[in-house]
């Protein structure tokens, strides 16, 4: 009893003393850690790189054009003399397409998520969800073609007269709807993941009080999954704002400061796409314009992400 050797006091009689080895190499662990840090750093480096490559030429642009004129000007005609660099028509064009896309995609995407997570039989879900995710992978050029050659004529045919003039051959609505179609799977799939992650105990607790399935879904699961749901919508918006091919092919190239869905607009991405593939010399103001618009696009997406992180922090219900 009362062995003075504290380290070995717990061992059985006859068992050799086990001493801590002073050298604990585990070099492999360090290598893995290093690699992981490298991968994480890569994404930060990429983002920084994009920032730098956008900011450089943009500085050249803003030396020629004042930021106020750029941000608040309502006239976009960079190639007409004298040129005018008011970016608002492009911003409104982008927002308009995004808006119509969201009006279509958010309700459908969330309804699909609720169906998949709360109603669908596991077997049905195991077929539907991958199918939906394949939809998200359709090349946008195919979707652009679909918008231009199918959705636009359909809208023109179906347009009810009391709404005024029917859609133009290029219009924001057709592009918006097809972009909506593109982001439905994103919203549905990520929201479904978030809703399925809500503990079954919460659902059972509500169901045991006599809540119907719809109530359980809307009042318990939905708030608990809010951060994931908002994230899915934000990602959808980012995709919509950044989408180029569909707006280029279906929404036209007319700078137009209007939210009227039947009119042709010029989205920010479409401007960049068209201009960058046209023949313009580097170093000219036209060339720098691309970067200024690109930078604005980048900042818009960033700000939206920050706002949504705030919103989620404030409203989400944290379950343990």
């Amino acid at each position: 009893m009362g062995s003075p050797d504290v380290v070995s006091s717990g061992r059985l009689a006859g068992e050799p003393a086990r001493r801590l080895s002073a050298a604990s190499p585990r070099h492999g662990e360090k290598v893995i850690r290093g690699l992981l840090i490298l991968c994480a750093a890569l994404s930060i480096a990429t983002t920084t790189g994009i920032m730098i490559s956008l900011v450089g030429p943009s500085i050249g642009f803003f030396r020629e054009v004042s930021a106020i004129d750029f941000l608040f000007g309502t006239e976009w005609s960079p190639v007409i003399q004298p040129p005018s660099f008011g970016v608002l028509p492009l911003v409104v064009g982008t927002l308009s397409v995004t808006l119509w896309g969201l009006i279509f995609a958010v309700p459908i995407g969330l309804a699909a998520a609720i169906y998949l997570s709360e109603y669908a039989h596991p077997r049905v879900r195991s077929i539907l969800k991958p199918t939906l995710e394949v939809l998200a992978g359709i090349p946008t050029v195919a979707l652009g073609f679909f918008a231009f050659s199918f959705v636009t004529p359909l809208l023109q045919d179906l347009w009810p007269g009391f709404l005024g003039d029917g859609p133009n051959i290029f219009n924001a609505l057709s592009a918006g709807l097809v972009i909506g179609l593109m982001i439905v799977p994103i919203i549905a799939s990520i929201s479904e993941d978030a809703m399925s992650a809500v503990p079954a105990g919460l659902r059972e607790g509500a169901a045991a009080l006599g809540a119907s399935r719809m109530r359980v879904a809307l009042r318990v699961v939905f708030p608990a999954a809010l951060s994931g749901i908002v994230a899915s919508i934000v990602l959808g918006i980012s995709r919509a704002i950044g989408e180029t091919m569909i707006v280029l092919m279906a929404a036209g190239a007319t700078p137009n400061m209007t939210f009227n869905p039947v009119e042709s607009i010029l989205a920010m991405t479409a401007f960049i796409g068209v201009t960058a593939t046209g023949d313009i010399a580097t170093g000219t103001i036209e060339y720098d314009t691309i970067f200024a618009v690109g930078l604005l696009l980048f900042v818009m997406t960033l700000v939206m992400n920050l706002i949504s992180i705030r919103l989620v922090r404030k409203y989400r219900e944290v379950y343990e």
Binding site: P199, G201, L202, E204, G205, A208, L209, S212, E317
Partner: peptide
Amino acid sequence: IEVRRRIGMVFQKPNPFPK
């Protein structure tokens, strides 16, 4: 739903709502 309104249940793991 009517059944569960008359016959309530308490679970093994406490499951309060995150409210």
